[in-house]
Design a protein around this nucleic acid. Structure first.
Length: 420
RNA sequence: GGAGAGAUGGCAGAGUUCGGUUGAAUGCACUGGUCUUGAAAACCAGCAUAGUGAAAGCUAUCUAGGGUUCGAAUCCCUAUCUCUCCGCCA
C-alpha cells in the first residue's frame, strides 16, 4: 500500500515513479473522490457530535422529571441521517481501498525504468563451464542417475510434479541442510510456518487481490503458500514492535505451491517450474534506516551460498518493470544452466520498504519521536533448492554421466560423486 | 465430530447481572523527574490507535461484521479465534 498522503500531495511524482514500471495511472478521479470523502466525513462527524451531546443530556432531563419526547424524536431523525451517510461513506471508502490496494509499490530512485531487458548485471562469479563432451540436460541426468522420477510424479500429482528418489532426495535434503545450517550460523532465527494461510496473509504480502489466481485455494478458504515470505511477512501483522527489537532476522523452510497456469512448462522441462518446489527463505523486519544495509546483507548471504557450492552465476539488479508489485528494489541471483544456455533465477532479494507494512499495519515505536512508524520488510530466497539442483547436475557433470557433489553437501550426502 | 466457557490498552485484569460523560478502574512494564556519589527502593508526573483540525477539540475503535436504541464494552444475530471436557487420530 502506498501512502495516500503522498498521492494527495505529489500525484505527479507518484505517476512518474509508477511509469518506470510501465504502469499507467491517472489520479484525477481518485483525488476527486478523496475530497468528496473528506467533505462527507466532516459532515457526518458533526452530526454524530450533535447526537452524542444530546444523548448525554437525556438522562439528566429524565432525572429532573422533564419531557424528552421531542428530543428523542429529533434524534431519531438525526440518527437515521447518520446511518444513511455512513452507508454512502462506506461505499466511497471501499472504492478508495480497492484503488489503493491495487497500486504497486514505487520503485526506488536508483531502479532503472523499463522491463527485463533493462536489468543490469552487476557481477559474475566463476567461469562459464565448458565441456569436452556433449553435456546432458538436468532431466536426462536426473533420470539416468535415478535422482528424480518424473513419470511417477505425474502419476501421483499430475503435470508439474515430480518425486525425488533415493540419492536425489538426499541431495535435495542436503541442500536444505546446508542452507539452514549457514543461516543458523549467521544468527538468523529458524521458523517453520503453516503451509495453509488465510486471506489476510495474501493481502499483506501484496499478492492479493491481484494474484489470487496464482495460488491453490482450499475449500476452507485458506490457500497454499506460494512462498514462505507470505507467511513470514504476516508474523507481526497488526502489531507495534519496539525499536530495540529491530532488525529481526529470520528464515524459514517450506515447500512453495504455485499454479503456474499458462506458463512455459513446455519449454522448461524438468524441475525448473513445478507446482511444488522447496525453498529456504530469508526475511527481515527493520527500521527505515536499517533496510538498505539489510538488503545488502541478505544479498551477500544468498551469493555466499551459491559460491559455497561453486556454481557459476550472475548477480543482477532488476529494472522497475521486472520488480514484483510489492517491492521497491530487487536483486536476482541467476545460475547458469548449460542445457538452456541461460542464467536462471535461483534467488530474488527484495526490499519492500513500508509497502507490506502498510497493508498489514506493522509498526514500531520510534524511540526519538515516540511515534509509531511503519517498519520495513525484506525478503530473499536463500535459496530455491529445486532450481539449484538442476544447476548442480548440469554444471558439475562428468563425461561418464556422473556428477560431482559440491563440498558443503558431501557430508550430508555421504559421497563426493554420484554415479549411476 | 459432540458439549461448554471465553476474547477489554504493551501485558495482566476490573467493568457486561440491571445499556447513560467508561477510551475504559487497578497492577505490572515503559518514559521523564525528585532523592542518591551511583544504582535500587520510595515518591511525583506521563503513557492506546487512527482520522480531522493551526490549536482547543471533535469523530471512530473494548476480536470482526451486522442489528436494536436518543444512547452499546454492556442487549440480539453472524463469523473468526482461544480454552476446557468427550470422541477420533499422527
Amino acid at each position: 500500500m502506498l501512502d495516500i498522503k503522498l498521492i494527495r500531495e505529489k500525484p505527479d511524482y507518484v505517476t512518474k515513479a509508477l511509469a518506470k514500471r510501465n504502469y499507467d495511472v491517472n489520479f484525477d478521479a481518485f483525488l476527486t473522490l478523496d475530497v468528496q470523502r473528506k467533505e462527507m466525513l466532516i459532515e457526518v462527524e458533526s452530526l454524530k457530535n450533535k447526537r452524542n451531546t444530546v444523548s448525554r443530556q437525556i438522562p439528566q432531563i429524565k432525572k429532573e422529571g422533564g419531557d424528552a419526547k421531542e428530543l428523542l424524536a429529533q434524534m431519531k431523525v438525526t440518527s437515521d441521517q447518520i446511518k444513511e451517510m455512513d452507508e454512502t461513506l462506506r461505499g466511497i471508502q471501499k472504492e478508495i481501498d480497492t484503488f489503493m490496494s491495487g497500486l504497486p509499490n514505487l520503485p526506488d530512485d536508483d531502479v532503472v525504468a523499463g522491463g527485463k531487458e533493462n536489468n543490469e548485471v552487476l557481477s559474475v562469479y566463476g567461469t562459464m563451464p565448458s565441456f569436452d563432451f556433449e553435456p546432458k540436460d538436468h532431466v536426462n541426468l536426473a533420470t539416468s542417475l535415478n535422482l528424480i522420477d518424473y513419470e511417477r510424479g505425474a502419476k501421483l500429482g499430475g503435470n508439474g510434479f515430480w518425486i525425488y528418489t533415493g540419492m536425489g532426495a538426499q541431495l535435495e535434503w542436503a541442500l536444505l541442510n546446508y542452507f539452514i545450517s549457514e543461516h543458523i550460523k549467521d544468527g538468523y532465527e529458524f521458523m517453520l510456518p503453516p503451509h495453509m494461510l488465510n486471506y489476510a496473509c495474501g493481502y499483506t504480502a501484496g499478492q492479493f487481490p491481484k494474484f489470487e489466481e496464482d495460488v491453490f485455494n482450499l475449500e476452507e478458504g485458506n490457500f497454499m503458500l506460494p512462498t514462505s515470505e507470505t507467511a513470514l511477512v504476516n508474523l507481526y501483522r497488526d502489531e507495534i514492535l519496539k525499536e530495540d527489537d529491530l532488525p529481526k532476522r529470520l528464515f524459514a523452510y517450506t515447500p512453495c505451491y504455485r499454479r503456474e497456469a499458462g506458463s512455459y512448462r513446455a519449454e522448461e522441462r524438468g524441475m525448473i517450474r513445478g507446482h511444488q518446489f522447496n525453498k529456504v527463505e530469508m526475511f527481515a523486519f527493520t527500521t527505515p534506516e536499517q533496510s538498505d544495509a539489510l538488503h545488502q546483507e541478505l544479498t551477500k548471504k544468498a551469493c555466499a551460498l551459491v559460491e559455497g557450492l561453486g556454481l557459476h552465476y550472475q548477480l543482477s539488479k532488476l529494472a522497475a518493470g521486472d520488480v514484483g508489485a510489492a517491492m521497491a528494489s530487487t536483486y536476482d541471483i541467476e545460475v547458469y544452466l548449460p542445457s538452456m544456455c541461460i542464467y536462471k533465477e535461483v534467488s530474488s532479494i527484495s526490499n519492500s520498504r513500508d509497502y507490506q507494512a502498510r497493508r498489514g499495519m506493522m509498526r514500531y515505536k520510534n524511540k526519538d519521536t515516540k511515534k509509531n512508524d511503519y517498519i520495513h520488510t525484506l525478503n530473499g530466497s536463500g535459496l530455491a533448492t529445486s532450481r539449484i539442483l538442476p544447476a548442480i547436475l548440469e554444471q558439475f557433470q562428468n563425461a561418464d554421466g556422473s556428477v560431482n557433489v559440491p563440498k558443503p553437501l558431501q557430508a550430508f550426502v555421504g559421497t563426493d560423486v554420484i554415479k549411476a
